[in-house]
Design a protein around this nucleic acid. Structure first.
Lengths: 123, 123
DNA sequence: CTGGATCCCCCAGGATACTG
DNA sequence: CAGTATCCTGGGGGATCCAG
């Protein structure tokens, strides 16, 4: 496919739609975007993420990080030190995702927000 | 917003992160993307969507469409005819979202797919 | 400090039957 | 044809305690 737009003459492409679903799944965790957001700034330690993200528990943070790691969206580095230290950082895939994330946010701010302005833009 | 990139010098922007979460929520329904995908081609009748989307039930189709409508992502047109006819079509917001959706899919195909190489095979 | 093991709750998703 | 009205289920999310 040489053109990044939807082919109006063809029926639904099931496999590509599946890809789309999977891509969404990767970032669908409740805290994943916020974690990635922090990692866009810099590498964080586990405790830093925990303190910075309001409302998250160790358990959830661990789970979300494990999933992100399995999906190649974060890198986990363990330091064999006396007080355990684990650092999480973004990957190439994470970096490549940033423009899309920002585009999604911009889209919401322009269209979604208005639509939710009361379920009806104006009357 | 003059720059579409994350400010590395600032802490987490809670409100913008909330916007991002909401944007994701709008398209997080299991069948929403596939519905939008079909509407990118052309306006569809309820029955058309039902027949075209494999595995969806009337119930789920109705629910997803209602949510999309409430979020301003689809337009619902009812024709007062003897055999009821209802058509669904995309909105300006839907159109504006297309590039982002395609970008997300392209991202997955380039990065996510490779990352899943060792996770779990398909079924 | 990091994170595993358990138990619990809620709700998106689904199966089924009925209707203007 | 295009929906509602019920009921049920799985699993994501959460609270809490334990451990290296």
């Amino acid at each position: 496919m040489d053109n990044m737009t939807i082919d109006k003459n063809r029926a639904v492409p099931p496999e590509e739609y599946a890809d789309l679903r999977k891509a969404l799944t990767l970032i669908s965790g409740k805290w994943k975007l916020e974690i990635l957001w922090l990692l866009y700034h810099r590498t964080h330690r586990f405790g830093e993420l925990r303190k910075t993200i309001p409302g998250i528990t160790q358990h959830m943070l661990t789970r979300q990080l494990r999933e992100l790691e399995a999906d190649g969206l974060v890198t986990r580095t363990v330091f064999a030190e006396v007080p355990p230290r684990v650092e999480y950082s973004m990957t190439e895939a994470t970096k490549a995702l940033e423009p899309t994330i920002m585009a999604l946010m911009a889209w919401w701010q322009q269209f979604g927000k208005a639509a939710q302005g009361g379920t009806q833009p104006e009357e």
